[in-house]
Design a protein around this nucleic acid. Sequence first.
DNA 1: TAACAGCCTG
DNA 2: CAGGCTGTTA
Length: 673
Amino acid sequence: MNLSHPDQNMHGAGDGCLEDDKPDVMFPCFRRNVYDESLSSYSSGSIISQLLRKTIHSARALDESHFYLSSSGGADCSQEDQNSVSSKDSTMEATSPGAHVSTGVNPEQEHPVPDHLQAKRARVENIIRVMAGSPNSRQHGEIEKADTDAKDVRESREAYRENKRKQRLPQHQEHGAGGPASRRPGSSNSDSCNAKDEECHKLKEQLHSMQKLLHQLQEKFLQVYNQEDPEQNGRDEPEVNAQRDPMGENLASHYMSGEEDFDRKTSRASVECKGRMKAAGYMLQRESPNLQETLKQELSRAVNDCVDRVFKKATHTGLDVSPEQRMCSSPEVHISMVVDRKSQAAGCTQDQLQEEEGAEKKRSLEYYESPSNQSPQDQTEALSLVVRKPEVTPLGAVAPTVKRPYPVHQTPFQFNYSTSLHDSQILEHLLKYGPHSSFGGLPCIPPSMDRTSPDSVDLTWDAIAMRSKVTSGHLGHHGRPSALGAVTVDNLCLPHVKIECGELQSMAERNPYMSLNIQEGLTPSHLKKAKLMFFYTRYPSSNVLKTYFPDVKFNRCITSQLIKWFSNFREFYYIQMEKFARQAIADGVSDVKDITVSRDSELFRALNMHYNKANDFHVPDRFLEVAEITLHEFYNAIADTKDSDPSWKKAIYKVICKLDSDVPEEFKTSSYL
DNA sequence: TAACAGCCTG
DNA sequence: CAGGCTGTTA
C-alpha cells in the first residue's frame, strides 16, 4: 500500500482514491480494494498480473503511456516497472519490487523454498485454485497444464472473441430492459443474468489460460535466471511469499468481485501483452546477458500497449467507460444511462476539463480539429456542441456547381475505425436513422488513429453516450451539476469519467466533426437540401422541417430561417409561373391544355436552375405535374383577368399548397447532401 | 400577441 | 437570399 503511489502526480484525486475518509467520487470501486492493494503488493508471481495492475494504474493516470517510459518524476509506474524487472534480475521471479518497498505487512510466512520452481508452481496453482473456486466458475483446473502456448493463446483469443460476440446483443437488450445485473459486490442487484455467468465463466477460462501461459513463461525465466545467478534466488523469497499470497487473493477476489467488465478489458489487454511477454521470454533465453534491459523494454512496451489501449479507448469513447464496464459497474449506471450523459455534461465545468485535459487527449484531438476551428466563445447559446459548420464540407459555399461532393449513398465509414469519434458519429447516425440510412452527409473522417481492434461492440454504446452527450449538451449547460451526475460518474468506476465528460464537451466544441451532426446554424448544404425538398413540398410544416433537418438544432430563429427559405422558393416559383403564364397568353395560347411543363420546358429549366443548380438531382415527375397545374392556374386567372385583384394569387396558393407530396425518406438523413 | 405568409427592397 | 414591413390567424 505504501509502495510509492504518487498518484497525485497522476491525477488530482489520487489520494482520495486510496483513502476511505475522502469521499472521492471518482472511482470508488477502485478505491482501496483490489487494485490499490494489488499494486502495492507487487509480486512477480504473475507478470501478467503486474501488467494488469499496471494497466489499471496507468489507466488511472491521466498521462498516457509515454510517461511510463520517459517521465522522470511521479512516474511510479515506470518505477515499478523497473523495480519489478530489476528485482527479477537479482532474485528471479521470486523477488518482488513490492518486497523492496513493502512495509512487510505480513511477513508471516518464512518458508524457505528449496526449489524455486516448485514454489513458484505451487503459488501459481494456488492462484488458479482460488480462481477456480470463485462463484460462477466451473472447474477449469482439469485443463491440462501441458497445453501448448499456442493453444493457450488461441483459446484465450477465441474466448475473447466469443465474449465480444456474446456481449453485443445482450448489451442492448439489457440496457433497454433497464440495465444488466451488476455483479459489483456492493450492488444488490439480484437479477443477475445467465449471460453474465457465462461471461464470467469465459473470463475465468481466459484467465486460466493466461495463468498457464504465465506459468510457462515464468518457468522459462526461471531457467534463465537459475542459470545466471542461482545464488540470489532465495534472498527475498520469504517476503515475496508474504506478498504473493495476498496478490493471489487479490486476483481471486478481483475476479470474484464481479468486475467482469474490467476483467475483460484487462484480460484482453493481457492476452495481447502475453504474446509479447512470451516472445520476450524466448528472446531472453537467447540473450541472457541483456536480460534485464530486454525484459524492461518488453515489459514497458507491452504495458504501454495495454495502457494505450485501455486508456485511449476509454479516453476517446464518448464516455470513458466501455460498454462492458458500464454494464457491470452498477445498476444505477444503467438505469440512468442516458440521463447520466446530461449530468456529466452539466457536472463538468470548462475549468475542470481544461485543467484535467491530458496531453494525450489534446494530441488526439488534433486528428480531428479542422483548420477553421470555431472558438468555443462563438457559442452563446445553450449548446455544448456547437455548430458553426466547418466550411470544409460544404456545398454551395465552396463550389455550387460541384457535382455531388457527397454522393448520396456513399458509405465512407469503415466500422472498424474504432476511434470514438467515428463510433459516435456512426452510431448516432444509426440510432437516429437506422442502419440503412445513408452516411453520405457526414464528412470524410480522417483515417482512424491507429486502433483497428474490432470494437464494433462498443459502437452503439459510444453512440449512445455521444448522442446523449450531444443532445443533452445544451441542457446541461444551463443546469447545475446534478447529483445524479456525480452518482453516475461515481459508479462508472473509472478515474477519467469526470474529466471525460467535460473534456468531451470541450472536444466537441473544438471538434468540427463531432459537432457535425447537430448544427445550430444552417449551412449551404442545408440550403441545397431545402431547395431539393421544394421539388416535393412547397409548404413544409415546421414539423416536416424538423424531421428532415435532424442535424439542425431548431430554435425560433432557425425555424424562421428555414420557413423563410421556402417562402423565398415559393416566391421565385410563383414569379416564374406568372411570368410563363403571361408569356403563354402573350404567345396566343388559347387553350390551357396546350400548356405543358416538361423537362425540356423553359419553365422547368428556369426552376431547375434555381433549385437544382448542379443538376445532380433527378427532379420528380410530380413536380412537373405540380408546375403544370400551377401554370394552368396562373394562366386561367390571368386569362380571366383575376389578376386585377390584389390578392388574386391567394387562390392559386391555396390550390398549390394542397399538392405537396411527401419528401423521400432519404432526405431525413442527416446532412443528406 | 406570437407565428406565419406574403410583398417589397436591396 | 435576407430583412423589413404588413396583414392574417389562432
